[in-house]
């Protein structure tokens, strides 16, 4: 760094005060090992006439950079996620259905035929299928590509959910978070639901059976897939589901109304679930 001038590290290096775009990009993507007296260096290098001029240019560049970054980060929106997770589930379901059909068909020509998507993969990978099995292999290929599509969509969901709903994604895991968004119809909708509703999202059939008066109330909906519920003794799952739903409802509200990541939510949930699970671990002398 000794053979270059210190001003080369500044955001304004290479930018002209008339080119707000280049300057904004430099603000967003640039780095420096240490801060320097940038206003003085900028005046010295001729970028700005004086400090006031420098600060005016800095203001324009930082505002443009931040506005662009905010739009980009927020562009990853909840609607896209809802579509992606629904498409992912459709692909998975369809792949499984077709794999069943394939297994049934294959059983008639090959006594060693397996089942499921794994068998489809095996079949699709066969180099030279016996004559007459071509349609079978072709169907297997479709199954495999659907399963691959589902995997790609899952990756997309896992990547995008933390941007759209950072707290919900951290508490529920990205895929469950996206499913909750999908069931509620979006982040705003989820944020407006009481935690009791979040608790039974995905268990609507059981809920309405209960409301009609001939079934017990469901303890949990889709949140059953969360380790906090599944990893808890069945006697305490209702408590665990209630605690989890409460925290997820808060997380969705924070994500919608503030967008700030609140790591303490994770710890609070963990703490609460540990307490609940401890009731059954040590012989169920369960008070709190």
């Amino acid at each position: 760094m000794t053979d270059s001038t210190p001003a080369d590290d500044g955001w304004f290096a290479g930018a002209d005060s008339d080119e707000p775009e280049t300057a904004a990009t430099a603000v967003r993507d640039g780095t420096a090992d240490e801060p320097r007296d940038w206003p003085a260096l900028a005046v010295e290098s001729g970028f700005a006439d004086d400090r006031d001029d420098y600060y005016d240019a800095l203001r324009a560049a930082t505002t443009a950079a931040t506005a662009a970054a905010v739009t980009e980060r927020e562009g990853a929106d909840d609607r896209q996620l809802v579509h992606a997770v629904r498409a992912m589930d459709d692909c998975t379901r369809t792949a499984n259905e077709l794999a069943e059909r394939l297994a049934e068909w294959a059983g008639t020509v090959d006594p060693d035929a397996g089942t499921g998507v794994d068998y489809a993969r095996e079949l699709a990978a066969r180099d030279e299928p016996p004559a007459g099995q071509k349609p079978l292999v072709s169907l297997a290929e479709r199954v495999v590509s659907l399963a691959e599509e589902a995997d790609d969509l899952r990756e997309y969901v896992e990547r995008q959910t933390p941007t759209v709903a950072p707290n919900l994604a951290a508490l529920a895991g990205p895929v469950l978070a996206a499913r909750l968004l999908s069931l509620a119809g979006g982040l705003e909708e989820l944020a407006k639901k009481p935690s009791g509703t979040v608790q039974v999202l995905g268990a609507e059939d059981a809920l309405f059976a209960h409301l009609r008066g001939h079934a017990p109330s469901p303890k949990h909906g889709i949140i059953y897939t969360h380790d906090a519920v599944r990893g808890t003794h069945p006697d305490e799952r209702g408590s665990a589901a209630r605690a989890l739903a409460g925290k997820l409802a808060i997380a969705a509200r924070v994500d919608h109304y503030s967008g700030e990541r609140k790591p303490e939510l994770d710890a609070e949930l963990e703490d609460r679930i540990e307490t609940i699970q401890a009731r059954t671990d040590d012989g169920g002398d369960g008070d709190e």
Binding site: A26, T31, A32, P35, D37, W38, T62, T63, A65, T66
Partner: peptide
């Protein structure tokens, strides 16, 4: 506020804004 400079950066990574924020 003409002298308020907003920066979408992570405070745990000063190197990502040391090229913008002045020293001292």
């Amino acid at each position: 506020r003409p002298r308020l400079f907003p920066l979408l950066k992570d405070a745990r990574k000063p190197a990502t804004y040391a090229h913008v924020v002045e020293s001292d």
